[in-house]
């Protein structure tokens, strides 16, 4: 497995990366490389040039800012696992395997917007915000506006996802996952968080072309009812050789019920 030829350079800073992207629109950002490099070796992607931002210290680590934790986009899954963030450490522990968690980054995963990735459900359940920087300045996108479709996030050409802001005050959270036994991707994952105001937010991943909130489930749980069934009735579910659309819809119900019981 060899990729097509490409140029490689390391970015010296976020600003330098943004300038380089403006100069060369074909430049592709590489973070941990555990989605991009396999895609390049399988020739599903053939970027002519890579810009490596994995080692940028300004994008690593977790800080606090008022009512938010601010997570650098190049913080690895292994570091997220060891952190005191709400929900995300449990979710990070479900990502891939130890090698993926040692190299893969939270920002890389979220910007990539793989419909079977774990973090999008966590971002939706916690109401995370995304700090996206371009040459023209910085903007903040809410979780509900971040995931647009299969492998499509709100990060536009020439922009970089720099930080993820996760609200403090979440009092309880859980993640339930039915994973593919070989790839460890989510066939379905359900994330749930009880917020400071007592309201529960829930979201699923893996089951449709993008991760999404579960409004029917939230409504029931916040009214003190059980999760029940038919949570994604009428929604367009993914069906493939691993799991039919019907089975995925069923898994959303089962995992939501388990998550609600664990959340208490």
């Amino acid at each position: 497995m060899y990729p097509a030829n490409f140029d490689y350079q390391k970015a010296a800073s976020v600003d330098a990366a943004l300038k380089a992207m403006a100069d060369n629109p074909e430049l592709k950002i590489i973070a941990g490389g555990h989605s991009l490099l396999p895609a390049m070796k399988l020739r599903l992607a053939q970027p002519p040039a890579l810009l490596d931002i994995f080692n940028l210290e300004e994008l690593k680590g977790i800080k606090e800012d008022g009512d938010f934790y601010v997570v650098g986009a190049m913080t690895t899954h292994a570091d997220v696992m060891r952190s005191h963030l709400p929900l995300f450490p449990e979710v990070a522990g479900w990502v891939g395997d130890p090698m993926v968690r040692n190299r893969g980054t939270i920002g890389g995963s979220l910007a990539h917007a793989d419909p079977s990735a774990d973090y999008p459900a966590a971002a939706l359940a916690t109401g995370a915000e995304f700090v996206i920087r371009g040459l023209g300045g910085e903007r903040t996108v809410g979780a509900d506006e971040m995931f647009l479709g299969m492998f499509e996030s709100a990060v536009e050409a020439g922009e970089l996802l720099t930080h993820i802001r996760i609200p403090k005050g979440i009092t309880a959270s859980v993640y339930e996952k039915y994973r593919h036994p070989a790839s460890h991707y989510a066939i379905v994952g359900v994330a749930m968080a009880r917020h400071a105001d007592g309201q529960i937010r829930a979201a699923y991943t893996g089951a449709a072309e993008k991760a999404a909130r579960l409004p029917k489930l939230e409504e029931r749980l916040n009214a003190g009812q059980d999760a029940g069934t038919g949570l994604v009735e009428g929604a367009d579910m993914l069906g493939d050789r691993f799991a039919s659309a019907e089975f995925r819809a069923h898994l959303v119900d089962v995992l939501s019920d388990r998550a609600a019981k664990r959340l208490g």
Binding site: M1, Y2, H34, L37, P38, K41, L50, P98, M99, N102
Partner: peptide
């Protein structure tokens, strides 16, 4: 495999298991 599945290229980087076939 060369695509980060089989693990036969595993090395340690600062003590952490790492796939050398996916690491620039």
């Amino acid at each position: 495999c060369g695509i980060g599945i089989c693990g036969s290229c595993t090395v340690l980087v600062d003590g952490q298991v790492t796939r050398s076939c996916l690491t620039p």
